[in-house]
């Protein structure tokens, strides 16, 4: 589904990603962990097409197509979804209007007509139950004045509605209390299927207690330095990241 080969990227003059290799197949859940500043969120941004990042080398294919060649909105319509670490507040755009515009674009991309207002409402209602999303929030301005938990649940609601093939969750657990974390994780677990895949970016292994990954990768200094199964996450939780830094710094100069 997703094939990342030797991906390198920078922001302004700073090299952030220094050769990432990663393959994700349908039905898989991958977790990327790593200390702050290792490039985790940058990888998510590059995949979603954020303009601040300049890709300087490597390739990414998504369902066989060149992902890096697509505008962000095309990537979304092709089935890539990024749940933001910091969802953006947009006063004046209602949540409902936003969801409807996004749905309409996705359906048009598949050659489907827009849902009727009635069908749309029924569809939202079905999906909002998944993340216990308050109906009142749907009529408010997009994310404006939402609590941290409400914003993250709104991200998962969008994910549920747009039914992406690959979902990237960028530190979705940050700023969530344990109840909100459970709700978000339960929502994601219900959405898992043999046809879709998830890439979960997290600093802590806590989220992985609820969304159990098939593979865990450790990103450090712009490279994946270790890959394994869930046990690797538990090992990191126990030992922290310092051992990793020490081990790596033996191999290359400190930056």
């Amino acid at each position: 589904m997703l094939n990342i080969k030797d991906l390198q990227a920078r922001v302004e003059e700073k090299e952030i990603l220094k050769g990432i290799n990663l393959t994700i197949n349908p039905g898989e859940v991958h977790a990327i962990m790593g200390p702050n500043g290792s490039g985790k969120s940058s990888l998510a941004s590059v995949l979603a097409g954020r303009e601040d990042y300049e890709v300087t080398g490597g390739s990414v294919t998504f369902e066989g197509k060149d992902l890096l060649d697509m505008a962000p909105e095309i990537r979304a319509r092709e089935g890539l979804f990024l749940a933001f670490q910091y969802p953006v507040e947009i006063p004046g755009v209602s949540n409902m209007q936003f969801l409807k515009a996004a749905m309409t674009e996705h359906r048009a991309h598949k050659g489907l007509p827009p849902l009727s207002p009635k069908e749309f409402l029924a569809y939202v209602k079905e999906k909002q139950q998944l993340v216990e999303f308050d109906t009142q929030l749907l009529n408010r301005s997009l994310n404006e004045g939402f609590s941290g938990g409400e914003k993250k649940r709104n991200e998962i609601l969008q994910l549920a509605m747009l039914e992406p093939k690959l979902s990237i969750l960028d530190e979705t657990d940050s700023g969530l209390d344990i109840d909100a974390l459970r709700i978000v994780a339960a929502g994601v677990n219900k959405l898992r299927s043999k046809d879709n895949a998830f890439l979960i970016i997290t600093h802590y292994q806590r989220l992985l207690d609820y969304i159990v990954p098939d593979f865990v990768h450790v990103l450090y200094n712009g490279r994946i330095v270790r890959s394994g199964t869930r046990e690797l996450a538990l090992e990191l939780e126990e030992k922290g990241y310092d051992w990793l830094k020490e081990e790596m710094h033996l191999q290359e100069p400190v930056q």
Partner: peptide
């Protein structure tokens, strides 16, 4: 970017 990332 947020709007575009949802396909708009």
């Amino acid at each position: 970017f947020y709007l575009k990332s949802r396909g708009i």
